[in-house]
Design a protein around this nucleic acid. Structure first.
Lengths: 148, 148
DNA sequence: TTAATTTACCTTTGATTTTAAGGAATAATA
DNA sequence: TATTATTCCTTAAAATCAAAGGTAAATTAA
């Protein structure tokens, strides 16, 4: 579907705060709330908007560690991994990627004991590399419209 | 702050859909809507809930590529990078990490020309590695309570 | 132990928002 | 040109939210 200036304005506001009301957004961009609601509905139906998510601070839930883990799967072990990974409660993101590694994951862990235990579960599937996340430079920035 | 069963139930629902109404959530977990609102407010104030984000399909916005790029900064180039990266519209996530690389980024790009142009902007800061994302195995899964 | 305080939740109420319907103006299509 | 779609409006009903005041249970202090 085509995204005009108004749709981009709506997307920008909703990406920053998914709970903004349609009335408030409408007031800011010069539309009535039903008009905003209709546009949002269409973007949902078209798959432009794929969901609304609440960000939870892993640190405040008692998780001390967040890590990026890559996996280079052993011969014939990628498929078993893909079936199993959906059960891993620690994994918040998991992508298949090109390059030397097949998989990259973002995981949330209670402590180093937990990390160790999690790594032990992974090493049967392939060679892994672990990177502890030290800080967020940019967190969930909105997707932006092309300039010009 | 302490997260009891009810708070976890609220978090679980809001992580899946940030636009659920307090009334609906309340009905499902056996609380009134003001009670849910009060709990959510407290979790916001305590920083447990750090934001509400709308997920936009990069593919539907005309972006053909999503990639993971790591950066191993040259001597004295990390700080300049950290100051500059916030201006890069392509970057949706950026973390400082331990290990051989200093930075890992998630970027959204229009096409391979765009990717090339973006890499050219990065290589002044350090050595980079690019991994194209082929598919999502797990996308923004909720943070879960410890079992037991 | 009792008294005071805090906490969590309730109900009620008024303001706001959402949702649905019907209609007008504009743009696109036949 | 006539028809059809699209976009947005207004209106009104239904739902939700936000604020206030009150209750009961748990916690803390005396």
């Amino acid at each position: 579907m085509q995204l005009d200036e108004l749709n981009w304005a709506i997307l920008e506001k909703l990406q920053k705060n998914a709970r903004r009301s349609f009335s408030e957004i409408g007031r800011e961009i010069g539309l009535s709330s039903p008009a905003v609601a209709e546009r949002v509905k269409k973007m949902e139906d078209a798959g432009v908007i794929s969901g609304y998510k609440t960000e939870v601070s892993y640190h405040k839930t008692g998780h001390q560690l967040k890590a990026i883990i890559t996996l280079r799967a052993f011969m014939g072990r990628l498929k078993p991994f893909l079936e199993k990974v959906v059960e891993f409660r620690e994994v918040v993101n998991c992508y298949r990627i090109t390059g030397n590694e097949n998989i990259i994951m973002e995981v949330v862990l209670y402590d180093q004991v937990h990390l160790t235990e999690f790594i032990d579960r992974l090493i049967t599937y392939g060679e892994i590399k672990t990177h502890i996340i030290l800080s967020n430079v940019i967190e969930h920035a909105p997707i932006k419209r092309r300039l010009g």
